[in-house]
Design a protein around this nucleic acid. Sequence first.
DNA 1: TTGTAGGCGTTATCAC
DNA 2: GTGATAACGCCTACAA
Lengths: 316, 316
Amino acid sequence: MISSLQLAKLCGVSQGTVDRAMHGRPGISEATRRKILAMAERYGYRPNPAVREIMDRRSHLVGAIIPALNNIFFMDMMSRLKELLAAHQKMLLLTPVHDQEDFTRTLEEFAARKMHAALVVPPEENLVLPSNLTKSLPILSLLSKCKNKAITTLAADDIQAGRMAVQYLANLGHRRILHLTYARKAKGIMDRICGYRAQMKELGLESLVAVYRDEKTFFETVNRYRPSAIFCHNDWLAITILRQVQHRGIKVPEELSILGVDHTPTFQALYPDLSSLEYPLKHFTECAAQWVITGKIHAVSEAFRVFEGKTTCRQK
Amino acid sequence: MISSLQLAKLCGVSQGTVDRAMHGRPGISEATRRKILAMAERYGYRPNPAVREIMDRRSHLVGAIIPALNNIFFMDMMSRLKELLAAHQKMLLLTPVHDQEDFTRTLEEFAARKMHAALVVPPEENLVLPSNLTKSLPILSLLSKCKNKAITTLAADDIQAGRMAVQYLANLGHRRILHLTYARKAKGIMDRICGYRAQMKELGLESLVAVYRDEKTFFETVNRYRPSAIFCHNDWLAITILRQVQHRGIKVPEELSILGVDHTPTFQALYPDLSSLEYPLKHFTECAAQWVITGKIHAVSEAFRVFEGKTTCRQK
DNA sequence: TTGTAGGCGTTATCAC
DNA sequence: GTGATAACGCCTACAA
């Protein structure tokens, strides 16, 4: 692609005039503008945004870092967010990272490029990032917290989610409700456990929390606890155990109810019948977009919603 | 973040010297280098790659465009590819697109930014892109073809995949093998149908191809054709119908064998037991990386491989 | 060993 | 209405 100077020469005008034409600025005659736009079209000229961004000392790119694996939820989220940011002339670009070193290196590259902001899913909880990074690049941490004070965290109200799951299952008559979750100490995980425990206690029920490791261990847990319902940390986990449970001939939901969390587009498509707590993705992405644009989050928290699929039912 | 000029002033040297220090170039004393590097560390200085790229007239960013929905396969692919490209100092950045307009706009932005290359999953087959684009930006189309001559297509040998699926199922004793696929006329889809038909014919079996629309239509097809095995275009489709089939009490694989295609990391994790033709992802991504770096593809085509899960078995 | 000058593509500003 | 110039941050080439 040619440069503005080349185009100017081709049109027999100056760079300044080309600029006026390309950006619809005043101070140019209609005839000249049309001529320049026609030539631009012909040679496929478009100003390189990267140059503009150097002068502004700030890029219009927003970088996002998501896990290389197990990223269905985040992709659904980013797809929405991308549209919101596009409305503000910000381009969202994603990169999947494999480990913590990769994570930090990528973030440093984002900072060096003077990206407008970065949205990150930290590979582990309470990550500590070099203070250089947090100084030069606004970072929003999704779902997990970072040690650095300067890094804002965005998460839905997961305590509420835990409570809501219990309340929903209890209303269906369940008493032995197992919460199946992950070993990672991420904020979202801990909060849901917390909410689950609090609500179980309020209802006078016994808390049963288990970490999913493998099929064998899982069924040992099931045989020990004999739950009538399992509240899974997310849909990914719910789908995993749903398969295993059905494979053993256990009837879902008649013998065992299963409830997940997320219900984002991909999970809906993958398993439309799965009962799930719908993540407030709309509100969540709006908050994220707002943060990118204004630097602030006015988190009027919006709640999860129960999606009644066919993997939960009234306990007889 | 400060600029090289600011850092130079802080160190009491010139920009040129800062440059020598930052890039480990000769012509600088060890003492000066250490001093500059220390200050750079302290102020978090790193040269902005975007500036360098303007001078080179070519960015080190490689843009990738993938569908906003149903992108599990592509995410798995891109995660691998990212690592391969990182080894060549190229940064892969993804963006999910929602429709064709979004697709074209994004590609134009990539071109304007003088990206090194673009890897795209076209939203539809035989797309026609403005010739400006194809002139200024090397584009590699994944799985689907574009009308433009200048756009290279990268795809695995899907005809071979179709044949292999049939052969595998026939070896298990299946005679009534249904091929379930999509309505889209993408190359990958058409080629697998083609391979399926060819191999069925060779074995003297009757071809049964059906497009998946909804659950109801699907079971009408099953009842009409009475297949003992279903070869699904991909794992996504296989998982969808697996759920529906089991829900109706049909035993898999005893009464009905199901075979998918892809077997990428996410599908493996989501459904480890699913029998599938493993997509030659390693080879595929190596080809893509090679194209990005050299502009050429030496496609020593590597084949799909059968993964024998628990959703296929010998037909009694 | 170090400093200086020029240029990359774009835009803002001022002069004509 | 249009052209010239400076500036953004960096790097190469050359001068000291």
